[in-house]
Design a protein around this nucleic acid. Structure first.
Lengths: 352, 352
DNA sequence: ATGAAAGCGCTAACAG
DNA sequence: CTGTTAGCGCTTTCAT
């Protein structure tokens, strides 16, 4: 194991260009007060030598670490990986976040955290101390965890809260849950449905409430009150089973159901099958997640596509902006979700 | 944005415990020459203050960076993410590699590289210079890229080559491709098949050859020569289509086909459907990848499960061992793959 | 067995 | 506009 030290350092560049370390530093950081000719001379040396600054050294000298930490839900992610399904959130965050980071010379580091653990704070503190990231991206349910947001706020680290508008600091970025739910509802309304059931998500997530609101408002606007067409779920398959059973046992039964996530939507399909209901002939179903499982299902699910990649990319931009002291948007950033119509929604049958 | 500096440093611990910085350093690195009582006193201070060493500072002082870089195929990974399928390789590497890293206080950083780019070396050098990782994990096809292995070897960085045994240094870890292919072949042989087609993978990957060898040996052992039952592919869906068409046009046609990856296996299914062949009644199919697409397909594919997570975990262990100067295995490490029988393999029809 | 001193590569603060 | 100085937190020498 050859001891590998930093090959080309700022010193080499300075020597090669015949300037001071500081001037080189100014050039690589694109700082003012360098004459253009000086700048190009230094840049030439940098290119010639293939110099790349050490992230560790930059961090040491009090500047940025060029690292952004993305916190994802530990148990769920590992369970998805183990089951050999992809973990859609992580995948899409990597797609949007990692690529955006690369544009700015940053790196995205994934961290799995159990939001309910007694030692979330200890775990997160450890990650912050070890890595000293320039920012942290919080995904649900972490975005709504006051221990996490509080710690980050106190630590003075820039952080984005995806899917949360609550107090506790941080930069909020949401995916237009209310509008998306309303869109899905209107899609069904336009297909002639009127008894549209809605399975809510875990109330611990703020977005669960927004989705219910979108559905209720769209229903109300069409003159359909929420009379028992709402069932509680918690995003798990089991809760979806229970909710769907409850909804489909009603008389008259709903002709369409919107589930607040993919697992519960799949559960609706399972229950429909058990009860001999054909989808979409007898029952239309919409999933609030456009994951591989919903896409590759037969029939493929009509779904709300949450723009996780775009959101993660925006989160990275916001964190970098915050670190640069640039002004941040006063209002929460909204990356709108879109309804993707596939095979599980159809006109309400005339008899129903 | 409050300027956040390292809160608790080694100095605070040293002061609290009333010892020198050096002693604290020895304790956190578990080095010899510290009396037990001294050690426990320091450890108490560490725990009390919640001290976590800064990765950047440790790296700066010439020791490890506690970072391991995992190189994955750029285009394929991004395409998978964009198509909203998971990128199975990345997912499983995170599962195995990231969790193993966490056990040792390391972090896994994913890097996407285009192995065919003119500037692979520049890109990789940049990543090495910026991050100064303690090790690099190479996945196919990077494992077989002499520019990459050469650079790493010269740089003196510990690296694991997954799925490659070629020259060029590094620690080889393979997944028993030959045995796996032989197992798959024998499974079909036992079901009464004798005309078993094999679609080879991209010859740029060493493992493509091993898989062919496994199939051929098993066939030969059963007295079936390789007379035109082998078709060339390159792991793409299109190549799978062409290969399957060629194979199924033969007279008499094969009653089973093993495809060297999931995409080509799916292509076999497509071609079979076009030709009116029922799977598995008329044709058995085995995929050499146990990805979500193969699992959730209807019918679910019988597949060889490549233990990517276990392999990545082992890779991390090997890199850490190498950094510690511990002896490495002389022979290539083999993490065996297993055949998972699902719905696309059945006994050969009597008439065939 | 412990401590003191030097330095890793870089940038902030201060001179010129 | 450019250079000099000091120091980030830690580990390596090298003393004691």
């Amino acid at each position: 194991m050859a001891r590998r030290r930093q090959g080309i350092t700022i010193k080499h560049v300075a020597a090669d260009a015949g300037v001071s370390l500081q001037t080189v530093s100014r050039v690589i950081n694109d700082e003012p007060n360098v004459r253009p000719e000086m700048k190009s001379r230094v840049q030439a040396s940098i290119d010639k030598l293939g110099y790349i600054p050490s992230i560790a050294a930059r961090r040491m000298s009090g500047s940025r670490s060029y690292l952004i930490l993305a916190l994802n839900d530990r148990d769920r992610t590992i369970a998805d990986w183990r089951a050999r399904r992809g973990a859609d959130w992580v995948d899409q965050m990597l797609l949007g976040g990692m690529l955006k980071c690369a544009e700015f010379g940053y790196r995205l580091v994934i961290e799995l955290v159990d939001t309910h653990s007694d030692h979330v704070e200890r775990e997160l503190s450890a990650a912050l101390a070890a890595l000293q990231p320039d920012g942290v991206i919080l995904t649900p349910p972490h975005s709504d965890n006051p221990f996490i947001t509080g710690l980050l706020d106190r630590a003075g680290v820039a952080f984005v809260r995806i899917g949360s508008l609550g107090d506790g600091g941080g930069i909020p970025v949401i995916m237009g849950d209310e509008d998306a739910a309303a869109d899905a509802t209107r899609h069904l309304l336009e297909l002639g449905h009127s008894r549209i059931g809605f399975i809510a998500g875990n109330p611990e997530y703020h977005l669960s409430g927004w989705r219910v609101t979108g559905w209720r408002k769209a229903m109300a606007a069409a003159g359909h009150p929420d009379d028992g067409l709402r069932a509680e779920g918690d995003f798990s398959h089991e809760s979806g089973l229970a909710a769907a059973s409850k909804l489909l046992a009603r008389e008259p039964r709903p002709t369409a159901i919107i589930a607040s996530n993919d697992l519960m939507a799949m559960a609706v399909l399972d229950v429909a099958k058990d009860r001999g209901l054909a989808v979409p002939a007898d029952l239309s179903v919409i999933s609030f997640d456009n994951t591989p499982q919903t896409i590759f299902n037969h029939p493929a699910l009509t779904a709300i596509d949450q723009p996780i990649a775009a959101t993660a990319a925006r989160a990275v931009e916001l964190i970098i902006a915050a670190n640069r002291g640039e002004p941040l948007p006063k209002a929460p950033t909204v990356i709108p979700a879109a309804l993707i119509v596939r095979e599980t929604t159809a006109p309400a049958s005339p008899g129903a």
